[in-house]
Amino acid sequence: MTKMFLTLRKQHWAFPPEFHLPRLSLPHLNQKMIIALVILVPILLLTTFADWLPLQKPLQTNLRAIMQWPSHVHPFGTDRMGRDVLSRTLAGVQLSLVVGFSVAFIAMSFGLFFGTLAGLFGRAVDRAIMTVVDIFLAFPSLLLAIGLVSIVGTGLGPVVMAISLADVPRFIRLQRSLVLSLRSRAYIDAARTVNASQWWLMTRHIAPNTISPLLVAASIAAAHAILVEASLSFLGLGIMPPAPSLGNIIRDGQTYLEQAWWISTLPGVVILLIAISLHFLSDGIREALDPRARK
């Protein structure tokens, strides 16, 4: 009787956190997902079809039109070499998105694997994995990336690798805690009473119930990775000019802040928009999965 009234009284807000995943058809898109898509889809379209836009190419210079105010020809203005800032920004966004999604994917995959391993198998494996995770988590993420980039070099590949390596431990930790909390669920016990194998438990019961929270974390990680890549490139440690990246465009403009504020500020607004939309996406997924989050 004890549990009964505790359960029932709190039922409306204490539903099990892994409420079943509604099929994400259009009617299931909630407000937050829609906000995310309204920002993200146009940006995606613009970057994908940037080549067909009536804009100067990202690398093309025009020394007769340097540091021009934003206008209908150059909506974001031009930089010190007369390059079109919007077209460079769009190219930078493309790169940011590649970085963001690659990092999210890599970090999530490794996190899923090692986190499940740590959570499901004996103490020795768990302790070994978590000790390494703790060591990696001792480094502030940007600093770990800086350290790694300084060794493996600059460019897209190394940057993705460095940022992923900083994120993987976080995902391992998340996945491990999810697995640990699921492991004591009664449905796992029910499966164990009929001698279900570890593999069955993992693939049928544990993995499907951890994917959704991992996705929530992954879209945050994507936003974070985009910010870290921009920071690295801004410090001159990420994507090297003349290849455009949001970070190095802003760095380029820093010297001319007084004369041409638009070079630095406008691409920053774009980063902000992408980060916001990814956060809304994450909140939206969380809400769709957990009725408690709806408020």
Binding site: A230, Q254, S264, G268, A275
Partner: peptide
């Protein structure tokens, strides 16, 4: 929370 700090820095500087 989401403003990149280098960008905030430049905007504040400006």
């Amino acid at each position: 929370d989401l403003m990149p700090s280098f960008w905030t820095a430049l905007v504040f500087l400006l």
